[in-house]
């Protein structure tokens, strides 16, 4: 690599925020052209990690404040008003909202907690959201996910913390496929893996 090309490629970097899988947009689009599979990143969603006693009045108040109850059944997603709440553990949820909502949602949850022991942590940049959709979405994920993703077992409204190939993910079933919430540092690996796994399904 010459000094000029180094300077050139550095100059290309955008000032401003950048999502973990931004570099994959073109390859995702190319892989999605056939229609049988759709890969994309949804960048910059708000993610709040909420930990609270599920039986506490605070948990109930938080649900009311969000307009979406904190699910108590394992692996369930509750949705409403542009928010979804993912069950991550017996006392742990991920509140997913639109870009830029972290501050307001954090305040809403803290206010609802009203001094009770509740942990609310902004983890929006901790993970990014990859979309694996289309009729072959299940086939692609089956190459690296040991869970049964049949709609009877893992239909829309279900989520799980699991492994996709060799990285931990939060997997969410949505109407036309899946959202794969992957840690930012693993996003490139996950993107490369998905592109590779989708080779036979690009139709």
């Amino acid at each position: 690599m010459t000094a000029e090309s180094v300077a050139g490629s550095v100059a290309e970097f955008a000032i401003g925020r950048r999502s973990p899988a931004a570099a994959y947009a073109a390859r995702f689009a190319a892989a999605s052209a056939g229609g049988a599979i759709r890969l994309a990143e949804i960048p910059f969603l708000t993610h709040l990690n909420v930990r609270a006693d599920p039986a506490s009045p605070a948990a109930e108040r938080i649900g009311a404040a969000l307009g979406v109850p904190l699910p108590v059944e394992p692996g369930v997603v509750t949705e409403g008003g542009g928010l979804s709440v993912l069950w991550l553990g017996p006392d742990e949820w991920l509140v997913v909202g639109p870009d830029g909502a972290a501050r307001e949602l954090t305040e809403r949850i803290r206010d609802a907690a009203a001094g009770e022991h509740v942990s609310v942590v902004d983890v929006s940049a901790q993970r990014t959201t990859l979309v694996v959709a289309g009729e072959r979405a299940r086939d692609v994920l089956a190459h690296g996910c040991a869970l049964d993703l049949h709609p009877r077992e893992f239909g829309p409204g279900r989520c799980a913390q699991t492994l996709l190939a060799r990285t931990g993910v939060v997997l969410v079933a949505v109407e036309d496929g899946f959202h794969v919430l992957v840690r930012s540092s693993f996003a490139a690996y996950a993107a490369e893996w998905l592109l590779d796994a989708s080779v036979e399904y690009r139709g």
Binding site: R18, A165, R166, F186, A188, Y189, E192, W193, D196, A197
Partner: peptide, 15 residues
């Protein structure tokens, strides 16, 4: 299988 080369083990990178 596919666990070869760059996919053998995840590479983690910072922003």
């Amino acid at each position: 299988g596919r666990d070869r080369g760059p996919l053998h083990d995840p590479v983690r990178v910072a922003a």
